[in-house]
Nucleic acid binder design. Sequence first.
DNA 1: CTCTGATATGTTAGCGATAACATATTGCAA
DNA 2: TTGCAATATGTTATCGCTAACATATCAGAG
Lengths: 332, 332
Amino acid sequence: MADVAKRAGVSTMTVSRALRDGASIAAETRDRIKLAIEDLGYVLDQSAGSLSSKRTGFVAVLIPSINNSNFADTSRGLTDALEGSGLQLLLGYTDYSTEKEEELIGSMLRRRPEAIVVTGGSHTPRARRLLEKSGIPVIETWDLPSQPICHVVGFSNAAACFALVHHLHGQGYRRIAFIGGTSNQDTRGADRRAGYENAIAALGLTESRVMSFGTPPISGKQGGEAIVKLLEQWPACDAAVCVSDLSAFGALMECQRRGWAVPRKIAIAGFGDFEISSQCHPRITTVGVNCYAIGNRAGKLLLRAIEGEHRGEPIPAETIITDYAVITRETT
Amino acid sequence: MADVAKRAGVSTMTVSRALRDGASIAAETRDRIKLAIEDLGYVLDQSAGSLSSKRTGFVAVLIPSINNSNFADTSRGLTDALEGSGLQLLLGYTDYSTEKEEELIGSMLRRRPEAIVVTGGSHTPRARRLLEKSGIPVIETWDLPSQPICHVVGFSNAAACFALVHHLHGQGYRRIAFIGGTSNQDTRGADRRAGYENAIAALGLTESRVMSFGTPPISGKQGGEAIVKLLEQWPACDAAVCVSDLSAFGALMECQRRGWAVPRKIAIAGFGDFEISSQCHPRITTVGVNCYAIGNRAGKLLLRAIEGEHRGEPIPAETIITDYAVITRETT
DNA sequence: CTCTGATATGTTAGCGATAACATATTGCAA
DNA sequence: TTGCAATATGTTATCGCTAACATATCAGAG
């Protein structure tokens, strides 16, 4: 920057001002500096700037997996909300593990993000402590934690799954099963299962049929294997609720492969409204959960929170509940 | 850090050493410092550290889209390769636009990454200049540029698509069409189309049938619409090569919806071997391109390059060609 | 008992930018 | 013409950490 300043015949402070907007600087000087920058191929060092200004321009975002169209949509919503704000996403993948999340939170905080967005409301005690003491706005998403750390943007996975089972009951299905992963690490999956169990009880259905198969997130392939095992164990079963659309899709395709009519022999429902569910044949009944909106509203909330923090007037903790809807299609 | 130092009765330098491994420090002192850190809830400020050590620990990665399982696999490969190295990905999405790429390269370089990975070999002139002058290892992936900037990890999209068409010809198909997006911004898509055209010419087939539909990346829905238009325009067409598995899947599902037998009425092939292609019914013939390996090998290359850079012995530009293979399944 | 080299710790001086304040310059109302 | 606010630029002192060098301590060889 000193080189640029010398070449433009100004001080470094003026160069610094030329690179930001909102600073008072003569148009002519700015042009001269821009020229010098172009000539020298200078690129601002933002880490140095952050150190001085105490604004890193980072937002830390932790999602369970990159390879999941739901979370991809959420981070797209976030990216879009932050467009033009000068804020940059620092993305991390937890692989559905709270231990990995804890580790990632640590390494993220070392970068001094201005806010942090996490997926879900269950964390290791240490992770929770780190978040609480971080001094930056924290947003928990994709869930409605009973004891939120700060802000929340999400919905109740249990209620959404309850609604889905209720809907299937309304369609006349009575022997409804649930297909999900084997672990409780995927808390959203566990919540959905809880919603299923609640619905079975509330509807007065006698038997709950839970087929746990594979480590979450369960794949399409595992969904296919699960439905075969399900029908072996409970041949009379007339509907299967899958923990995600991906497993529902796998189950559906396996049925087609075996010549099992869907929904005549067995109905299949998913969760998440992945793109694939509206495109495959037959189209899959699912719960649409507005992933993009979760990210986008979290992004907008976070912008307000950061601005508040910066002006010394922190905004109070907010809980934004996003909507979901059962989408009836051809598999039920 | 000064607080921690005071509490542990040492200097800040010793605290700094306690936080890195490889530094000479007494185990007892380290424990005392760790304790003080835990008590005070201190979190190292890495930006300040980077400024001093000139090592930011960032690796910039630009991919066209987050919502594409191919690129998701590539970044997973990268993440895995970098595991434990202390390097952190700085991910950016170009939306298949070179303008956006240029802008992103600028904002990434301001963070002083230690290496940068870009997708494809075509960039705006300014973007190219920025990369060349960046002074860090640059890796172009997913392509074999004729004039690489530095390192390359990829394959020839044209050759891979050529091989696919050749394979279809071997299966007996003669009136082969290509379904892709309308723009040339997606250079990998354009390369695949070129490979198709070359193959048609090389095989002595008389007519090339290119159905361009929608802005890349074309969706499953667009794939479905495209195959309908394709068969309207060229009813005798007996096989369709789609620019990606997603569009192939959409086309396949649309055929099923209309009761068109695949592959009897028309064969369908994709590109990329997305998970979906091996799970749907019938399974889709495609070209497997080893996305994970592209990311993983790029990651390992980059580690060597950074280390070389750091030791003052930059490694020479490398070109790693990853393999691909036509995977014959049930749609052809 | 001294000397040497290894190990452990401290001191000083930045890294490259910006905040905060100081100073020049300008325009325009009185 | 004078004075004062608004605008444009410069100066100085950090931001929080680590490199590089300096110093202290100690074990073991001679």
